[in-house]
């Protein structure tokens, strides 16, 4: 309703205007249809009903902030749980097969493989990504799982064993176990000897500066290192000993890093997932890691 009864009356319609003007346009002050008003009331009633039926008002209780739960007990967390449950149920058949079939047989089945890679990727993000990275790219001390370099082997069986039993995971009796000694800290080798060995290791990938030192280092290598790393430095997967001739270095391949590794030893740990994840998930993870590019 207008503020004043003296508002201008429109000639054509005989209806009073609201008294406002926007760029020469005036608005007729026609009454609103009643049903519109009733719709508005209905909306208000609806909102009251909504407060009662659905979660609505926050309030402070003796246990802190909470809210009115509503009579039907709707809860979005439950909705999510139900939806995730439905996904798991939808995959149940496939996961059952993935858990029981041989890994090679699962890989041969396109549908099972698709489910495995999806489930594996999800499980990797939940459990493995904190150390290996979300793209399995690894970092200093945590292997890159995309490359073709494997400390303990890259076949489906090898990966599955590592996942199940872990590496240097004491709680698991069958864990992969081997230790690289701290040759410097434990006083096995002198600093000079360690520098010579490092020179030899660099020579393995053709990067030595001092041929004489490398020759001296070769002798020490022959005494101390060959047991695990092999005479030609190509490593031994049975013992988790890395190949020292390739281009991939877990703890860095420069002189200083090599000296550091020889001096203080290296023994990275990976937990055993056998008791924590179910068989289907471990198999899916195996196939996923295998598919990243380095699978053998």
């Amino acid at each position: 309703m207008s503020d004043s009864p003296k508002n201008e009356v429109d000639d054509v319609t005989g209806v009073e205007t609201t008294g406002h003007e926007w760029d020469g346009i005036r608005e007729l002050d026609n009454p609103m249809p009643k049903w519109w008003l009733y719709t508005f009331y209905a909306c208000i009633i609806w909102s009251f009903a909504y407060w009662i039926v659905m979660p609505a008002w926050p309030y402070l209780s003796t246990e802190g902030w909470t809210y009115t739960k509503g009579v039907i007990g709707y809860d979005q967390r439950e909705v999510v749980a139900r939806e995730l449950g439905a996904v798991a149920e939808g995959r149940a058949d496939e996961m059952q097969q993935i858990a029981t079939l041989a890994l090679e047989d699962t890989a041969a089945d396109a549908t099972l493989m698709e489910v495995s890679l999806a489930a594996g990727k999800a499980a990797f993000g939940d459990n493995c990504a904190p150390c290996h990275g979300s793209g399995a790219q690894g970092s200093w001390g945590f292997p890159n799982l995309n490359d073709d370099v494997w400390l303990w082997g890259g076949t489906l069986g090898d990966i599955h064993y590592t996942l199940t039993h872990g590496i240097r995971w004491e709680a698991d009796d069958n864990t992969r176990q081997n230790v690289m000694m701290a040759y410097g800290r434990d006083g096995v080798l002198t600093r000079r000897e360690i520098a010579d060995v490092a020179e030899f290791v660099l020579a393995l990938s053709g990067r030595a500066d001092d041929a004489e030192a490398a020759t001296r280092g070769a002798e020490i290598f022959g005494e101390q290192c060959v047991t695990c790393h092999g005479a030609d430095g190509q490593g031994n997967r049975e013992l988790g000993a890395p190949n020292l001739t390739d281009a991939v270095w877990l703890y860095g391949g420069e002189r200083a890093s090599i000296i550091e590794s020889v001096s203080n030893g290296r023994s990275g740990v990976m937990p055993a997932w056998g008791g924590r994840l179910d068989a289907g998930t471990i198999n899916a993870l195996t196939l996923y890691v295998h598919s990243l590019g380095g699978g053998e």
């Binding site: 990275g133 370099v149 281009a247």
Partner: peptide, 18 residues
């Protein structure tokens, strides 16, 4: 083109992209 990892160094020093 894979962004994570952007590239992967293989044992023989070759570079692989996914």
């Amino acid at each position: 083109h894979d962004r994570n990892p952007l590239f992967v160094t293989l044992a023989d020093g070759s570079i692989r992209n996914g």
